[in-house]
Nucleic acid binder design. Structure first.
Lengths: 199, 199
DNA sequence: GTGTGACGTAAACAACCGTTTACTTATCCG
DNA sequence: CGGATAAGTAAACGGTTGTTTACGTCACAC
């Protein structure tokens, strides 16, 4: 990645696939951090170090570029969240996937960004529903509200990323990610442990 | 299409305070549901049934109108979330405040909308921090990570509103709000109960 | 070498943005 | 009344948006 931000670069070789990836990376970053409407195609092109017209050429439109970002993120999320993870390992894995690198954070944030496209909204709903059902399977639950509870785990994760990055409220934003594992584990246990609620 | 929401009304009297409120209501609705950048001043003016120029007159600018919406929401949140609420009553109160009426939902969503204004971001951080500290006081906690855990409760609440309204993932979106009380109570208990974690 | 097609760019495009100006009209006090 | 002032509006402003067009220029087969 020789052409990121304002860094001066060797005169740029011609490589369609490469610039396509550069545009995708820049768009993921901008869309995730600033949202769809607040991001201009010139912002993305500048960050990728290429001309604006290439967005229309490679992705047809700004909305096409956004959809490419979203489906890419959805694929990566789908691959990294496998079924059959032991419940005890879940909190640490979630914290690592969501907060370890920038990419994981941006993937999650992209799920919250909307471009007004109904198709994109459906993609969003599907991936969250699918992940929730995998969590239910991993926990071995069969209660009628199991999926609802799994989605509440995801709600906690989404809110966590938001408060840590976008909103940046203290102490949540600056605390070591290790300190998030235990409380998140408590939440997961409370929501997904097979029979925690007596009557 | 005389005034609010298209509802026909008496031909609109001249009332500065009234139109100011109409603009505020329309702006809260649009900003909360569509975000700051995706909302145009003409959208807001049309929904309020007044002319665009009045936004600049009464609130100086689009950003001024947004700040007025945000501080208004922050005030109402601050008033409705008192300190000293019994931990057992908290989940039901939170569900009612956040999901009962549209207004509560919009107040929460406004906290997630950003206009690029640093002052607004600070307001956001302050109110979340303050609410978290009130939760700690209500729970009677003094653990070093108490505020962090309280903020995680708020993260769950924010994620819940997002998944129920903006993302609208099933079954979270369509389930009766009563069914959210018990799982939310489990989360609050797991995070805020004075001594749940042995050593 | 050379030309041919893909890659990249600069400039222009119409449409829309937030904001301002110039103007009309209702309301109220004397 | 009647005119002064506040409330509201229509239209235009410069700037920015996403997109397209027209034009260089590098790379590679021959």
């Amino acid at each position: 990645m020789d052409t990121l931000h304002g860094m001066t670069q060797p005169p740029r070789r011609r490589d369609a696939a490469g610039t396509r990836q550069a545009l995708l990376a820049a768009a993921r970053h901008r869309f995730a951090t600033n949202g769809y409407a607040a991001t201009t195609v010139r912002d993305i092109a500048d960050e990728a170090g290429v001309n604006v017209a290439l967005i229309s050429r490679y992705f047809e439109s700004k909305e096409g570029l956004f959809e490419a970002c979203l489906t890419g993120a959805v694929d990566e999320i789908g691959h990294s969240v496998a079924a059959g993870i032991p419940l005890d390992d879940l909190p640490r894995i979630m914290v690592e996937k969501m907060l370890d690198d920038q990419a994981g954070k941006h993937r999650l944030l992209l799920l919250l960004r909307t471009a007004g496209d109904p198709a994109a909204d459906q993609v969003r709903r599907n991936v969250l529903r699918t992940i929730a059902e995998r969590l239910v399977a991993s926990a071995g639950l069969d209660a009628p509200d199991a999926v609802l509870r799994a989605e509440m785990v995801l709600a906690t994760a989404l809110g966590l990323v938001l408060m840590r990055s976008t909103i940046a409220v203290e102490p949540m934003a600056s605390v070591d990610q290790e300190d998030l594992v235990e409380p998140l584990g408590d939440v997961i246990t409370a929501l997904l442990r097979p029979s925690p609620r007596a009557s």
